[in-house]
């Protein structure tokens, strides 16, 4: 009965994967529909009363509809910073890959510094205060751009190296200015890596907890991840509402991931652009 073995091992692998990936989600979902006292036990027992709507409304109403504001803020930060990131890093990656000068080495080192050096929080806050961007959306957006620029640029640079230089030259002969070569020939060819970049960066930025915590304090500046603090305090924790909040915060990135799953993989593995 040799042919049974692959199925058995497959089933075991699936079961393990399910425990690792699905169980936490089920746990979160389960706590989110319980009452406060049931949820505080933090177990897998089914709730006595399914309080999905009650909890959902409670979470939204908390602190004068703070969650709605948080969604707006997070979305604004994510969209703005990802847009700037994509444009900047594609352009920087293009120039770094195509133009060979003595400055290339300096730029490369700067790029790797950006990847390796941990950002220092206190000096950054000092700097932001100095230029009047502390506690502002603009400041937060610029911070997200700065923190993610290196990785994004590296991704673009390596992808651009697979686009034949002949295309640039053909466009040049056709009369394209450098700006037109980039926007009309190169940028459209970067679509796979751009999709990957958008997904990876927007999930990371949307889910970011620490950076908004440091650089964007203030009630009016709250982002989705920070709303989790609403139901947690030193003495009492409303686990049912906390988990409902987690559930709501997890949904947007999840949707992005489900829709772009295929493109992400395609972007990661995309090779040469064949004419």
């Amino acid at each position: 009965m040799r042919s049974v073995r692959p199925y058995v091992t497959g089933a075991i692998a699936l079961a393990v994967a399910a425990v690792i990936f699905v169980m936490p989600f089920v746990f979160v979902a389960l706590q989110a529909v319980k009452s406060k006292s049931e949820a505080s036990r933090l177990d897998f027992e089914l709730p006595e009363h399914w309080l999905f709507w009650d909890n959902l409304i409670a979470v939204f109403k908390a602190r004068d509809y703070q969650l709605a504001l948080a969604y707006f803020n997070s979305t604004l930060i994510t969209v703005a910073s990802v847009t700037i990131l994509i444009l900047l890093s594609a352009m920087v990656g293009y120039v770094m890959q195509r133009r060979k000068t003595v400055w290339n080495r300096v730029a490369s080192i700067a790029l790797f510094m950006g990847l390796m050096m941990p950002p220092a929080v206190v000096p950054t806050i000092g700097l932001l205060q100095e230029i009047g961007l502390f506690k502002t959306m603009t400041g937060m957006i610029l911070i997200q751009v700065a923190y993610n620029l290196s990785f994004s640029t590296l991704l673009y640079r390596s992808f651009i190296s697979t686009i034949p230089r002949d295309l640039d030259e053909a466009a040049l002969i056709d009369g394209a200015k450098p700006r037109q070569i980039f926007f009309r020939v190169i940028l459209p060819l970067l679509k796979p890596v751009t999709v990957t970049n958008i997904v990876v960066q927007s999930i990371a930025i949307f889910n970011d907890f620490t950076n908004p915590l440091y650089y964007l304090p203030g009630k009016e500046n709250v982002t989705v991840q920070l709303t989790l603090y609403n139901f947690q305090s030193m003495y009492t924790s409303q686990y049912n509402l906390l988990f409902m909040n987690i559930l709501l915060v997890t949904i947007p990135p999840l949707i992005v991931f489900i829709f772009f799953n295929r493109q992400i993989v395609a972007g990661m593995t995309a090779g040469a652009v064949k004419g």
Binding site: P164, L167, E169, A170, A171, I173, G175, L189, V273
Partner: peptide
């Protein structure tokens, strides 16, 4: 583009 030339590349260099 101002030289009055046109070029055909070995790789064709068509915009994909």
């Amino acid at each position: 583009s101002e030289r009055g030339i046109a070029m055909v590349f070995q790789s064709y260099a068509l915009y994909p």
